[in-house]
């Protein structure tokens, strides 16, 4: 009986496994294979060597990390205290969450496109800055690092916020009360009780935010200087594939992107398991 139901369950998994193999594992394997071959199909490391010896390509790693890491840290860093503040609800929470969800739904393309006008030299933001006499001449927010970082942050921050809000409001409030009754002040309660319980949520939202920021493509193209200082790694891969039609080189860059990504996630998860050790299972309210 048990065996039968197990086989039934496995049957139910077949469509999803077929999907995963055909549309993810096979393309990924194909990419790995392509990255390790020449155009004629013979084995080579040349595609990787080319990337690591070509200064223009190699620096895309630094450029992308230089956008993704600070923006993700900032997004999560602002979201944590904000969610802590909102953990038991604040007036207008529904409207606030609505404004946070809007950029997530609209996507990077619309946000970046809109930023060009809104944050441009004659846009509303600069009009406001000039009216308040915060600067002598219009501040440049577009076609530079700031533009890309703001656009990625506008996208990532709400994501981190909504994810952490779900997490932090799920922590049993009795734990906080208990800690206060035992004489801990707010600061101690936060660092010794709440923060450790939030670590898994922080780790996950950091990872997902980083993934989004690291594969930044539309915002770098629209709001940065994609030929120079903001030539991100995704753009390098795209150019090799669809401008130079060298799919072997493009696949190698794709594989490098995935490897860096997984490396960062591994580091974050290691940090998480060092700090966390399964404490919040009792903490979940």
């Amino acid at each position: 009986m048990k065996g039968r139901s197990r086989n039934g369950a496995l049957l139910l998994l077949i469509p999803a496994i077929v999907f995963l193999v055909l549309l993810f594992i096979y393309p990924f394997g194909y990419g790995l294979y392509t990255s390790l071959t020449k155009a004629d199909g013979s084995f080579t490391f040349a595609n990787y060597i080319r990337f690591f010896t070509n200064e223009r390509d190699l620096r895309t790693i630094g450029v992308t990390l230089g956008i993704a890491v600070p923006v993700t840290l900032l997004a999560v860093g602002i979201a944590v205290p904000l969610c802590y503040h909102m953990r038991r609800g604040v007036p207008g929470e529904k409207i606030i969450s609505f404004f946070f969800i809007v950029p997530v739904t609209l996507g990077t393309v619309l946000i970046s496109e809109g930023m060009l006008t809104f944050m441009g030299p004659n846009g509303w933001l600069n009009q406001l800055i000039m009216a308040l006499h915060l600067a002598q001449k219009p501040v440049q927010f577009t076609h530079n690092y700031a533009g890309v970082a703001i656009s990625v942050g506008l996208q990532g921050f709400p994501y981190a916020f909504l994810m952490l809000l779900g997490y932090i409001s799920g922590i049993n409030p009795d734990l906080e009360k208990a800690s206060q009754m035992l004489g801990a002040n707010k600061w101690q309660t936060f660092w010794k009780v709440l923060f450790p319980l939030m670590v898994p949520g922080i780790a996950i939202s950091f990872c997902l935010n980083f993934v989004m920021a690291f594969s930044v493509y539309p915002s770098a193209v629209l709001l940065g200087q994609p030929s120079g200082p903001q030539r991100v790694i995704a753009l390098a891969a795209y150019q090799w594939a669809f401008e130079k039609f060298n799919f072997n080189a493009a696949s190698a860059i794709s594989m490098i992107m995935a490897a860096i990504e997984l490396l960062v996630i591994a580091v974050v998860l290691a940090w998480r398991s060092k700090l966390y050790k399964g404490a919040s299972i009792v903490g979940k309210g």
Partner: peptide
């Protein structure tokens, strides 16, 4: 967790 641009090209 793998960026779409990474598996998207293959």
């Amino acid at each position: 967790i793998v960026p779409p641009m990474a598996y998207g090209i293959p």
